[in-house]
Amino acid sequence: MDPTTTESPSPTTPAAASADAGRPAIIEVEDLDFYYGENRALDGVSLAIPSHQVTALIGPSGCGKSTLLRCFNRMNDLIEGAERTRGTVRIRGVDIFGPEVNVMELRKRVGMVFQKTNPFPNSIYENITFGLQLQGVRSKTRLDEAVERSLRAAALWDEVKDRLHESGLSLSGGQQQRLCIARAIAVEPEIILMDEPCSALDPVATARVEELIHKLKQEFTIVIVTHNMQQAARCSDRTAFLYLGKLIEYADTQTIFINPSDSQTEAYVSGRFG
């Protein structure tokens, strides 16, 4: 049973089966339309995202990839005038736009890491424990364990273990982004959404985060929005190309970068438009 709702999971849709041979879909998007006021940001998007894989959303600015990403934890709800007008997003078979869904619970299960590093202006330790304390966890032992586990999972523990009570803002850009990933991991989500997580990082910090993404898929499902084609090629198992709000092509990353079937995908990944 899904912890975010009392509704029973509905049967898996046919779209889910096409996510990836041998891997069940964790997110199923079906015929999704999304508007910002009069502007259509998503136009009939359907795709199934497999669990424990990295799925990259690529496309030129304004193509709808960040909108689609933010649909997965209903972050768009916070934007005035933003509205889903048609279609569904199911996570583990449950419609996340359903009336029974607790959005806070949903966001706990579907964590997010943003383009701009945004640690809280508190200590490294408090950055990690914040979400857990909100959930009512008070046990010092449990919090300590969560801090170490999350920082280790984010490959940051060795660098910060002796200064856990220093400000998160004292870390370098790359370390701050890994701290944000650790913070997302701390509440034990199933899915981590990443919106251009490396765009503000130098190549070494980028490589560390990419290494981390690769490692984290053992435990989590990751959906990443990136403008960096090589990053999508290096990090992801599946790639979806969006253009003008439509899903143009969705396939194994290798297929997208070696033999895409759509000429628009080919032109975009080759840097010929966008």
Binding site: M229, Q230, A233, F257, I258, N259, E266, V269, S270
Partner: peptide
């Protein structure tokens, strides 16, 4: 130039 798709082939 990091070629992909047809260019890579």
């Amino acid at each position: 130039r990091s070629p992909v798709a047809t260019e890579l082939r």
